[in-house]
Design a binder for these strands. Structure first.
Length: 938
RNA sequence: GCCGGAGUGGCGGAAUGGCAGACGCGGCGGACUCAAAAUCCGUUGCCCGCAAGGGCGUGUGGGUUCAAGUCCCACCUCCGGCACCA
């Protein structure tokens, strides 16, 4: 009767842990103890509830913290919810339910599901980014950004009050000083083009626009400029890149971040633009002379075209110039005859989103402005074109085109028949291939620079131009400032006030909301629908929310809201001190627990979330609010869990089968049960028609595919411990792996065997199995136990849970046949099982008569002497092929090994009559006889 | 196109350059049972062989090494990401 029943013991122990506060964490780590802050990426509480992907990372971290607690470490392991976001808002628009209601409901579901899985979070620290008290501090941190400017000399953020004000600005009065400061803040406003979709009445993210129309609905999207809040993350680009070096993150993730930041070095150069009608050559000479005196100006004047290049060495090959359609000098550069064509081109470009421009532009397009610029080194005039492959937002928005040594410029030159001049040759003198040579080599056709190797040439040209005031070394980043505002309802309101005059018109002056007035709450709204204009929903709030008076002045609240990233940028700090009403986190608490020692989550956050939170953290660090420059010391990405493996056959219109490798778009896929297919060679085929190849693969879980596995169902069918253990047993944590319900059953079988190891299943009442005895275990069993504990210990530390579980299975396989099972063998086993299957372990621990909870029992110590062998089995090879095995004392040296191997009858036979050329004997590993005359033989 | 990652039995996977396939699923055989389920035990890479034994095997082709799943070169396939950043 008393079978292993997860549905009985799991809720029992969850309630016990809750009632006893087993996993509550103290304010500070215990004195003299190691601390471990182990953090999961908190979930967005979607309406669909928990997905089986969530428990993967959560179980991994749960095992680690349970293990660490048992080893006496002070553990911080919190959980919360990233609860702002679009789905709740869209649900609100569809159903009229306020987002807060549906969000709270979803959080309850998530909390129930997480508790059902027995994770050892300190639930008293739970936070949601939507909690008004949390929003308060998110807004407060925004105000820190607002109050900070980046001092390039010190390479750090400083209070805006410390910003030196140039005298000419100060002379223009407080308003001028105010706007000068506003322009230098880390949080600043700018007119940025956005994807506005009039049909949907909303602004869309770049990813939501495909081919110039909205991803959903296929409505046209236009690019319109809109006032936006930006965060000056680019100021921190260098530090964000350099500080990656010290982090224990996967190299691949670091590389993604480095590529995203995209640091490049090169030079900025000015090309002189002769005024229309002037003598170009004379003008250039005069300009050059002036520059020799004034040097390179910080801002480019209107008589030059400033470009950025990473290859100043190719300057002699710059045969034309390109400017972005949005470049401020386009109007000025365009001669009257070209005006219509250039205007039309700019118009078309403006319609396209960034994605369009890059995605669809196979063919290079552009228009000639009619103007020329003067090459600063050669003095030659080169034509200036407008082309949309030049991005206004990168570098200076203009480039010198070197078609001989750049793919894109080459294509452009080929399309429009522009001159191509070779100025670099491969250093090894190899024949010029078709197309541009983009590699490094030696300069040719470059006057005084001929023969210089590329690196040296870059240096020389840059130095010469710098000396002449025509250029300067420059660094650029792909990283852009962070567009931080959304025209949405369900986000944090900005704590910013815009001054208005008596007619409600903005004066342009802005004020931060005072700390004491935070949080700025979301106004009550009944209608969440977007409007006909890009005005955010908050603009429709009642006037008593929208307009406020301070010190006799009237203000209108900022009506944009923050993006979902905001809340997740700092949640790891709030977890440390979640109920602090005076500060976002107590400094003593922050110093004691930070940094996060292990951070586990999906790779989809490799770039944005991790970059954004590092940025915020550095600002907080610069301003003295946190003690560490980096928040996450060790990062691990768990892999995706795919749906169950699927076999798909294809049927033609007529109904006949089509081999999967020859199918056309018209052939219909048919899902096949596993019994109907079999493997032939490399591929799967239909069992009844082996000539028909069938597709076999696992797909990403999705509602539309109908292959989503629901954790509630798995827990119902197999139990939470089985789900936890299965997800850890599937394979390496980082790998993408397909789900297999049969595999869950297999792991459940293991837990059943664990149960029977201790419990008498045939008894009426729950009772110990009669085999459980007080005997002392024999040496063989002690050896087995200590090796198992040793392997599990090491595997948990390297997050190799699959092999740890395999080792425990082997241990159980050894113990199951025993008629006498010593308690001193079973007890340590239950202890190491506890982090993996905590409910079962608690129950078995109790049955063994030990005081609960096993969750806080000490981790067993491994005795070294049980890990050593007296004798070892060594494979013996002849000519590299395995021919026998010998058993030798564990410490046997090479000579002894060789002697023992040669003495083996079988080996002796093989060696008879052969000349041994060489013997490789590696103690503890192998013996290999290499023969001089392998072919010769009887 | 570029950048990552991965290709090992029927399936998931294991293997500090040193016995490939641990562990689990599935399959096969057996014990228990009137029978079945459950459980326990054995077996299970492929080929030849009655057996002893032998041969072949980690995506493909080369290479380094006494020895390669593991290191190097070239390529193929799949998955993920980025995509005109001058």
């Amino acid at each position: 009767m008393p079978r292993y029943q997860p549905s009985r013991i799991e809720p029992k122990w969850q309630a016990w842990w809750d009632a006893h506060g087993t996993f509550a964490t103290s304010r500070l780590p215990a004195a003299g103890r190691r601390k471990a802050y182990v953090l999961d990426m908190f979930p967005y509480p979607s309406g669909d509830g928990l997905h089986v992907g969530h428990p993967e990372g959560y179980t991994a971290t749960d095992i680690v913290v349970r293990f660490e607690r048992m080893r006496g470490t002070s553990v911080m392991h919190p959980m919360g919810f990233d609860a702002f976001g679009l789905p709740a808002e869209e649900h609100a628009i569809r159903t009229g339910t306020p987002p807060r209601e549906s969000t709270d409901r979803n959080i309850s579901t998530f909390r129930r599901q997480l508790k059902m899985l027995g994770f050892s979070y300190d639930w008293s620290r739970e936070i949601a980014t939507t909690d008004p008290e949390y929003v308060r501090w998110t807004q407060w941190i925004f105000l820190v950004l607002f109050d900070t400017w980046f001092d390039p000399a010190e390479r750090r953020g400083r209070p805006i009050a410390d910003l030196p004000i140039p005298t000419e600005v100060a002379a223009r009065g407080p308003a001028a000083v105010g706007s000068y400061r506003d322009a230098h803040r880390l949080a600043y406003q700018s007119e940025a083009p956005v994807n506005w979709c009039p049909a949907l009445g909303t602004v869309l993210a770049n990813e939501e626009v495909v081919g110039g129309v909205s991803e959903r609905g296929g409505h046209p999207v236009v690019r319109i400029p809109l006032r936006q809040w930006m965060l000056r993350i680019t100021a921190y680009a260098d530090r964000l890149e350099q500080d990656l070096d010290g982090l224990s993150w996967p190299e691949s993730i670091k590389k993604l971040q480095r590529d995203w930041i995209g640091r490049s070095t090169g030079a900025e150069l000015d090309f002189f633009l002769p005024a229309a009608g002037d003598d170009a050559a004379a003008g250039h000479v005069a300009w050059t002379r002036r520059r020799a005196e004034t040097g390179f100006p910080a801002e480019a004047s209107a008589d030059v075209l400033r470009v950025y290049t990473t290859r100043p060495d190719t300057l002699w090959g710059a045969t034309f110039m390109l400017v972005a359609p949005e470049h401020p000098l386009v109007e000025r550069l365009t001669i009257p005859e070209r005006r219509a064509a250039v205007a039309a081109y700019r118009e078309t470009a403006a319609q396209k989103s960034d994605l369009d421009r890059t995605d669809l532009a196979r063919e290079k397009t552009g228009e000639f402005t009619g103007s020329h610029a003067i090459n600063p080194l050669t003095g030659q005039p080169v034509p200036v074109w407008v082309a949309d492959y030049v991005l206004a937002t990168y570098g200076t928005g203009a480039i010198m085109a070197v078609p001989a040594h750049d793919e894109r410029d080459f294509e452009f030159a080929a399309t429009f028949g522009l001159r191509i001049a070779t100025v670099v040759e491969p250093a090894d003198g190899s024949a010029a291939a078709v197309g541009p040579f983009t590699g490094r080599g030696r300069a040719v056709g470059s006057g005084p620079y001929d023969g210089l190797e590329t690196a040296a040439c870059i240096e020389r040209v840059t130095a010469d131009l710098t000396a002449a005031g025509l250029g300067r070394p420059a660094v650029n980043y792909k990283l852009r400032d962070w567009l931080f505002s959304r025209q949405r309802f369900w986000g944090e309101p900005f704590p910013i006030l815009h001054e208005v005059d008596a007619e409600d018109r903005l004066t342009g002056s802005i004020e931060a909301v005072a700390d004491a007035e935070l949080p700025v709450p979301l106004p009550p709204l009944t209608d969440f629908r977007p409007g006909n204009t890009p005005d955010p929903p908050l603009a429709r709030a009642a006037r008593d929310w929208l307009y406020v008076e301070r010190d006799g002045r009237r203000y209108r609240r900022e009506t944009n809201t923050m993006p979902q990233w905001a809340g997740s940028c700092w949640y790891y700090l709030r977890f440390l001190d979640p109920r602090n009403a005076d500060r976002f986190v107590d400094p003593a608490v922050e110093q004691a627990w930070m940094p996060v020692d292990l951070y586990v989550g999906g790779a989809e956050h490799a770039v944005l979330h991790l970059l954004y939170s590092r940025f915020w953290h550095k600002v907080l660090y610069d301003r003295g609010h946190v003690s560490q420059p980096e928040p996450f010391d060790r990062l691990v990405n768990q892999g995706m869990i795919l749906g169950e493996m699927e076999f798909t056959g294809y049927r033609a219109g007529g109904g006949g089968w089509v081999p999967a490798d020859r199918r056309g778009d018209a052939d219909a896929p048919v899902r096949l049960p596993a019994e109907q297919v079999e493997k032939r060679g490399e591929h799967f085929v239909l069992r009844d028609m082996p000539q028909v190849r069938v597709e076999s693969r696992a797909y990403k879980m999705s509602k539309s595919r109908g292959n989503v596995v629901n954790p509630d169902q798995v827990v119902k069918d197999f139990g939470a411990d089985s789900l936890r253990l299965y997800e850890m047993f599937m394979g390496p944590l980082e790998a993408t792996k397909p789900w297999s319900t049969a595999g869950v059953g297999g792991v459940r079988g293991f837990l059943d065997r664990c149960w029977r190891l201790v419990v008498d299943e045939r008894a009426e009442e729950v009772a110990l199995a009669p085999q459980v005895v007080d005997d002392a275990p024999n040496d063989a069993l002690l050896r087995e136990l200590h090796r198992m504990v040793d392997k599990v210990t090491r595997d948990i530390q390297s997050l190799s849970f699959n092999t740890a579980i395999a080792r425990m299975m082997e241990f159980v396989n050894v113990c199951t046949p025993l008629d006498r099972r010593p308690r001193t063998l079973l007890e340590p086993f239950v202890t190491v099982l506890a982090p993996f299957a905590p409910h079962l372990a608690e129950e078995l621990w109790e049955l063994l008569g030990k005081p609960a909870p096993v969750s806080l029992a000490p981790w067993p110590t491994v005795e070294e002497r049980w890990l050593r062998d007296d004798t070892v089995e060594i494979p013996v090879q002849v000519q590299g092929k395995l021919r026998g095995r010998i058993v030798v004392p564990a410490g046997a040296d090479a000579t002894a090994l060789q002697a023992a191997a040669a003495a083996d009858p079988k080996i002796a036979e093989l060696l008879a009559g052969r000349t041994i050329a060489k013997v490789v004997a590696v103690p503890g590993r192998t013996v290999n006889f290499v023969l001089a005359n392998p072919g010769a033989g009887p």
